[in-house]
Simulated scan of single mutants.
Amino acid sequence: MAISISNHQVPYNTHDYFDVTFSNDTILTLVTHTPSYVDMWISDIERIHRHRLHSLVVGLDIEWRPSFNRNIQNPVATLQLCVGRRCLIFQLLHAPSIPQSLVNFLRNPNYTFTGVGIESDVEKLVDDYNLGVERMEDLRTLAAEAYGEWELKNGGIKSLAERVLGKEVNKPKWVTMSKWDQQWLKPAQVQYACVDAFLSFEIGKVLISGNYN
Rank of each mutant, 00 (worst) to 15 (best):
I3F: 06
I3Q: 10
S4H: 08
I5F: 03
S6C: 09
S6R: 14
N7G: 01
T14H: 03
H15A: 04
F22K: 08
D25I: 14
L28N: 14
H33E: 15
T34L: 05
P35T: 11
Y37C: 04
Y37H: 15
D39N: 15
D39A: 06
I42G: 02
H51N: 14
H54F: 11
H54G: 10
S55Q: 13
V57I: 09
G59L: 02
D61F: 01
I62F: 06
I62Q: 08
W64T: 03
R65G: 10
P66N: 03
R70T: 13
N74E: 12
L79T: 07
L79A: 09
Q80A: 08
L81V: 11
C82R: 01
V83P: 02
I89Q: 06
I89R: 05
L92K: 09
L92H: 04
L93W: 13
P96V: 13
I98P: 05
Q100K: 15
N108C: 10
Y111P: 02
T114G: 00
T114S: 00
G115E: 00
S120K: 11
V122S: 05
V122T: 04
E123Q: 10
E123S: 12
D127I: 03
D128F: 02
G132M: 10
V133M: 00
M136T: 13
L139D: 04
L142F: 14
A143L: 12
A144R: 09
A146P: 01
Y147S: 11
G155A: 15
G156N: 09
V164M: 05
V164T: 03
L165W: 12
G166N: 05
E168G: 12
V169R: 03
P172G: 02
W174Y: 14
M177K: 12
K179G: 05
D181A: 09
Q182F: 01
Q183L: 15
W184L: 14
K186F: 05
K186I: 04
K186R: 10
K186H: 11
P187Y: 04
A188C: 09
A188L: 07
Q189D: 01
V190I: 14
E202C: 14
I203G: 02
K205I: 07
V206M: 04
S209Y: 01
G210W: 06
N211I: 01
